[in-house]
């Protein structure tokens, strides 16, 4: 594994501010971190160049834009997981595709317009691949997202 990018205290602070709100102005970030706006910009540029920052994600209220159903699919299969992911990608609104170690062989997060559509897709996967089991976990209630809880320097203990 390549060596992790070094994140110092100020980088850590900047990233956490951007996790809270990526649209925070340079001026506000500079105030919080006690460094100039130019330094903030340079640090952000560095993190982009090193591939740590890859962009910015907006979280909309998904049911307000037509996706009330979120589900985590767990698939147990002997088929090639990549083929299943390719299929899912083509036929569903696949958000987080992943082959998995542990409970399932493939673990995927999908969105759906309604429960019937979700069911149709699950049936398609069952029929098409030699799938032993598809486990559907539909998200209910309001998911609690706490992205600020991430440790951005996992290799420094304590």
């Amino acid at each position: 594994m390549p060596k992790p990018v070094k994140i110092d205290d100020i980088d850590d602070k900047i990233l956490h501010i951007l996790i809270e709100d990526v649209r925070t102005s340079l001026k506000d970030i500079s105030k919080h971190c006690g460094i100039s706006s130019v330094s903030v910009l340079n640090r952000i540029k560095r993190l982009k160049k090193l591939g740590v920052i890859t962009g910015a994600t907006m979280f909309p209220h998904i049911s307000k834009i037509g996706f009330p159903i979120v589900a985590t699919l767990g698939i147990e299969t002997d088929a090639n997981p990549q083929e299943i992911l390719a299929f899912l990608n083509q036929h569903t609104y696949l958000i987080e595709p992943s082959t998995s170690v542990g409970e399932y062989d493939v673990c995927a997060l999908v969105y759906a317009e309604d429960i019937n559509r979700l069911n149709e897709r699950v049936e398609m996967i069952r029929q098409r691949f030699s799938v032993r089991k598809v486990i559907v976990n539909v998200w209910s209630g309001v998911p609690y997202m706490n992205f600020s809880n991430i440790n951005l320097r996992p290799n420094i203990e304590g």
Partner: peptide, 23 residues
């Protein structure tokens, strides 16, 4: 109106030492 809920910086976790996610 709550249509836009949050704007978050996107990070490649592999660059800072993570290998994946646990469910």
């Amino acid at each position: 109106e709550g249509v836009i809920q949050k704007n978050i910086v996107s990070i490649d976790l592999s660059k800072i030492g993570y290998q994946g996610k646990a469910f």
